[in-house]
Design a protein around this nucleic acid. Structure first.
Lengths: 193, 193, 193, 193
DNA sequence: AATGAATGAGAATTCATTCAT
DNA sequence: CATGAATGAATTCTCATTCAT
């Protein structure tokens, strides 16, 4: 029961945060939407900030878990493609979660700690992949941090694009375009300026 | 006097929004910081949303104005480089403005209308450039909308990166890396997947 | 020009007061509706209360002026009928004015002074009539003040009734019913309890 | 506890509304006078309008409950007299309630719904009585709605009159005058115009 | 006389959080 | 664990009125 109520609250919170904003979604509304009493919310989460951070972490963990394990025998490009497709697939299956990440990654209400944890948890695999690629000369010799930020934002932007234009999500050409831009941004085969 | 008070309010609002968040910055605080009465804020902006949107538009307009005019006789790559550098230069000179754009592009407090206007106003030049590039076979044959979204996010991400790590802003290698990834993402010279 | 602006303000105020209430109609809205500047309203009326009282007085004076003069040679009942019909006719021709009187006769925003002045100004003729009628034994021997209050409220109620049901205003039977109840309430021919 | 706080709020609201007007009585003042926190007022009433309407309904219900049941074996005139006296007695015992009804029946702050409910609830008995009287030929053949409006306003006016002149409330002659005018207005024994 | 920007006290309402049951 | 009434500080916005032009 307890776990279920906790989860009901997280589910309701996600929807309300996306629809009405972090501050527009009052704890009382969330509790009501979750079908629990106001006080119950504060049994499971010390305060609203903790609810937000818990939700953020849950989502990022879910995204990380949806990615395929890194199989070192595969080619870098194939691995990158697989990760990209899995991630995008997960995003299209959970549009509210993408919207939530997009909208609140920058928010002052998300604790700096949660932001950090999140970045390395999800992007850990990606970083490994990029470093392998650099050793093989396939990925450009760019600073790690910058590459990670750019991976993150290219993914989020593409996911948001397909969520905003659902009719394009099945369009092979558009999907390939997004993946190509992502790969080319990182790969060494591009121009060196 | 009137224009000056309006501007004082916009200036104060920018700072407070970036420091304390859109909802953390109460209208009363903004007015006080601007050195005007609360009522004055509402004399110039019908409500907080309008203040936010007005600020958003002003900043985007400023960014658009900082870009060099499109000189068709120049090479695409040179033009793109020039635009990128000017834009990034403007961003580093106005870090709060970049932060504001970044943090609130997704906010439900930014009116959908403002978001629209903004996209076409700033990115107009960029779109022209990309289309010229496509005609010359230098820019990949990707959908306009997707390319624009990706330009937008690559620029914002890079700007935020250099703002967050000010010591890197003068680092030639890092600067080149950002520009290279941007150009390769769009150019045809990359891999075709 | 000056008189005209004053009148424009009174006209706009009447409409807004009736539509939005005495406090719902802000002076700024009234000024705007009247096509004058905010400050202008305060040139003509020292403050909002004075505007309200002035409007109240103007309307009551208009109503009083619409009544026929008392011709002593006529029968009481004919005189009463004539006054009732004139008054009701005026009311139906100026429904907003009736509504205004109805809604704000009780308001704490109407100065007690204005209320008093008004009562004696309009009802002066009626009082004379009633006293003549009492001397002739046609009007019941009731206290003056009570009779006046009841005349006032029967008239206002009837006027409001026909304004609320405009399709009944032309119905001879309904009109006669209202007048009959009014006359019987006051006349001696009724039952003595 | 909960019911008691709700009632404390209604009680305080009645007094303040009558003393200071509907808009003069701020919700904060009401809460303070009721000895509860501001938030508590809004816990029980969604907004000020609902508080006003709830108060209005409560009072009218109280008035309706104070009236004697209709005993069909009695004479119409005796029944009418009994109802009138009971109603007036209730009114004199609760002058603030009469003032409240009188002052705000027309207010745009009273929801149209509350106004409707109220009219049929209190006046239901009166309507029955009038219709019985008409069948017996004792009450004039007037339209129901008009009769009800007039009953309502004659009662309110009389009650207000005695409240405004407390020294007259015990005066037998004045009391009889009011009742007589009320009865004659409705009865068939008066003149037919 | 007329204007309308500026004022700032005050209004209604919200909301995270607590706590007695 | 769960409840939901109660809290009161904080927020957005309104509005009568003033005054320099």
């Amino acid at each position: 029961m307890s776990t279920s109520k906790r989860q009901q609250i997280l589910d309701a919170a996600l929807l309300l945060f996306v629809e009405q904003g972090l501050e527009g979604a009052a704890t009382a509304k969330i509790a009501k939407a979750a079908g629990v009493a106001t006080g119950t919310l504060f049994h499971h989460f010390a305060n609203k900030q903790e609810l937000i951070s818990a939700l953020y972490l849950e989502i990022k963990r879910e995204l990380a878990d949806s990615l395929p394990p890194l199989q070192p025998e595969q080619e870098i490009q194939a691995l990158a493609t697989a990760i990209w497709n899995k991630a995008l697939g997960w995003g299209l299956a959970h549009p509210e979660k993408i919207r939530f990440l997009l909208a609140y990654y920058q928010s002052p209400l998300l604790s700096a700690e949660a932001r950090k944890t999140v970045k390395f948890e999800t992007l850990g695999v990606v970083l490994e992949l990029l470093q392998m690629g650099q050793q093989q000369g396939l990925i450009g010799d760019y600073p790690d941090d910058l590459m990670l930020e750019i991976c993150h934002s290219l993914f989020m932007t593409s996911a948001a694009y397909f969520i905003d234009h659902p009719q394009l999500a099945g369009d092979e050409r558009q999907q390939r375009a997004a993946l190509t831009m992502f790969w080319n941004a990182l790969a060494t085969t591009g121009n060196q300026l």
